[in-house]
Design a protein around this nucleic acid. Structure first.
Lengths: 110, 110
DNA sequence: TGACATTATATCCGATTGGGCATAATGTGA
DNA sequence: TCACATTATGCCCAATCGGATATAATGTCA
């Protein structure tokens, strides 16, 4: 599940994110991460993809989403780029601000 | 759903948590919270209840769970007590350390 | 009741998080 | 190509988070 998503990325993006600390392949094989931490990273990858998807589908700019959820454009950009310094709290907040129900959100996490 | 859980609490506990920042009733009616923030608090309440439930069901002490997830007993106590300063990341990490699958966890969030 | 186990609180402090701002990079339409 | 919109990055700093430790409170069982 993670691997397909990664394959969709151009390699430049991939490298940048790796430099930022993200792990590809299956995050589990990154030795300094506990299995729980690896699973959470995978989760975040799925959620951030959904954020961009939903936002653009709604014809919304990053700045608009930021305003809707009391954040800043730069933070949205970072979230969508995959900056690991984005909490699950913030990711869920974004999905909620995009109008998603708990059920829809939980579906993304299965 | 939130209200039942709250009703189970003795009023002393309730007051303590309120002093700590938690909101009861439906978190939505607390005016300084955005709807998204309120929804996240509700989510956290559900998750922390599940943590205690699962942990005790497995006959595990807070200290043991803490060790299993690289945290401390005091933090687990705070999580279960409802300290709002517990991120979703940490709550999910705990649920994962308790052996729950993504599917089971997402079920808790619906 | 008393020893022991478990859970709750207080406090400290380093690390992480996230908004704000500036600016660069990229995209887009005329 | 040029103006304008959008997105990406770098930097700063306040606020939050979370582990660690100590200690208090509560629970349990003989």
């Amino acid at each position: 599940m993670l691997s397909e998503r990664v394959d969709e990325m151009d390699s430049k993006t991939k490298k940048r994110l790796q430099d930022k600390g993200w792990v590809f392949g299956d995050a589990a094989d990154f030795l300094e991460l506990s299995p729980e931490e690896a699973r959470i990273i995978d989760l975040k990858l799925a959620l951030r993809a959904s954020i961009r998807e939903e936002r653009t589908k709604q014809g919304m700019t990053q700045a608009e989403l930021a305003k809707a959820m009391g954040s800043s454009q730069s933070r949205i950009a970072r979230i969508e780029r995959g900056d690991p310094s984005a909490s699950l709290d913030l990711l869920l907040k974004a999905l909620m601000a995009l109008g998603m129900s708990n059920k829809q959100i939980s579906k993304l996490m299965e």
